[in-house]
């Protein structure tokens, strides 16, 4: 059980996909305009990563080396499509606001990266731990960024249609630039600098 914990914890802080490895930034920046989107994207992402890690670690001893990348891509693309169709059918509002960034999970470097670097070489238990760790690492980064952007950009905090609170002084005059694409660049730039200042080394 020791290696399970180790593999689980790794993705959360030490090799956090967003802040340390700087991978898979497209969805992180594109849909982090609201907390709803962040939660939805994180759940969709983690489901795909978990399922792909499980399947690939199960068949890892049978995949011919030469076609392994196409095989991984087909498996991941299938899982992503299943998640996409489910979202369209059961949570249409979320599916609409995440738009094409759901099918684009396919080309998220993290998922293919974990398949190639971890799941194809490790046991299923460890692959599950790895997927959960990376998923949580992705989720907290995404939620932190969207929290900052939503609070400053709209002056309010809403979650799934419920109004939680209004930032004093910002409610009527929000800093709308945080909702624009450049707001995302700014927030992540400042967060990276902050983490470095706190002594966490962000890799190049």
């Amino acid at each position: 059980m020791h290696s399970f914990t180790k593999n689980f914890l790794r993705g959360i802080i030490r090799s956090n996909p967003t802040f340390i490895l700087l991978l898979g930034l497209c969805p992180t920046l594109a849909v982090s305009t609201s907390l709803d989107n962040a939660v939805g994207m994180s759940v969709a992402f983690t489901c795909v990563l978990l399922a792909s890690n499980i399947i690939i670690s199960l068949i890892r001893n049978h995949v011919p080396v030469r076609v392994r990348i196409p095989v991984f891509i087909v498996i991941i693309a299938t899982l992503v499509t299943i998640v996409d169709l489910m979202l369209q059918g059961f949570i249409p509002a979320l599916s609409k606001s995440l738009g094409m960034y759901i099918p684009l999970i396919v080309v998220n470097c993290i998922i293919l990266g974990r398949a190639e670097a971890f799941a194809s070489k490790n046991s299923t238990t460890n692959s599950i731990a790895d997927a959960l760790g990376i998923g949580i690492g992705f989720a907290w980064a995404m939620i932190l960024i969207s929290l900052i952007r939503q609070l400053l950009g709209t002056g309010k905090l809403d979650l799934f249609g419920r109004h939680l609170f209004t930032v004093p002084g910002l409610g009527d005059n929000p800093v709308a630039i945080f909702l624009l694409p450049m707001g995302a660049f700014f927030v992540i730039g400042v967060l990276l600098a902050l983490f470095r200042w706190m002594g966490v080394s962000t890799g190049e």
Partner: peptide, 28 residues
């Protein structure tokens, strides 16, 4: 990782995966 077996196995394997994928998606 599986060992590199004779020439056709990788192709058959990939085809098999694609078939499973089509089946799963048609069902969904």
């Amino acid at each position: 990782m599986g060992t590199r077996t004779n020439g056709f196995f990788p192709v058959i394997f990939l085809t098999l995966i694609v078939f499973i994928s089509v089946a799963a998606l048609t069902l969904t």
